[in-house]
Amino acid sequence: MTESDRPPGSTPGLPPTPPPYHPRLGPEPLPTNQAEALAIGRKHFPEVGSPGGPTGLYVHEFDIGYLIHASWPRPEDPTAPPAEPGGSNVIISKIDGEVSDVPNFPPGHAVELYHRHYRRRTS
């Protein structure tokens, strides 16, 4: 990295200064419909269609929240192990707007897991 490539305020000989940290100041606004939930959920996934990003984002509404889950492009070799295993879905609470990550399970299983977690949190 040349001196002209350094961000302003960084010190020569040290790694570049990281971007400013913006703490989360509270829950997201309460979504009132699937479109609003999807807008909140988009912040938690790579841009749709970007390299390595999902091919689409979908909303599954249930009694106390919205599950946002992604579809991913088919692998070139379906028999090969995934390049990036794992992943998660996002649930946005209708009660307080809290955003939670749940494993990349089918929607019914992810919602069931969230229900168990939510009951523990409010007990």
Rank of each mutant, 00 (worst) to 15 (best):
D101Q: 15
N104T: 10
G87Q: 02
K94M: 05
V99F: 08
G86S: 04
G87F: 01
G97H: 00
E84F: 05
K94S: 08
G97D: 01
P81H: 04
I95D: 14
E112D: 12
A110C: 07
I95K: 14
N89Q: 07
A80C: 06
I95R: 13
G86E: 03
A80Y: 07
H109W: 03
G97F: 00
D101G: 14
E84C: 00
E112R: 10
K94V: 05
E84G: 00
E98V: 11
G108F: 06
V111A: 12
I91P: 09
S100K: 12
D96F: 00
F105T: 05
P107A: 15
A110M: 07
P85K: 01
V90G: 06
V111R: 15
P82N: 03
I91N: 10
P81V: 03
P106A: 12
P103M: 11
G86H: 02
N104S: 15
H109A: 09
D101C: 11
A80P: 06
V99G: 12
E112V: 02
F105V: 00
P81E: 04
D101W: 12
V102C: 13
G86K: 04
K94Q: 08
P81I: 02
D101A: 14
G108A: 12
I91L: 12
S100Y: 07
S100R: 12
N89W: 01
P85Y: 00
V90C: 03
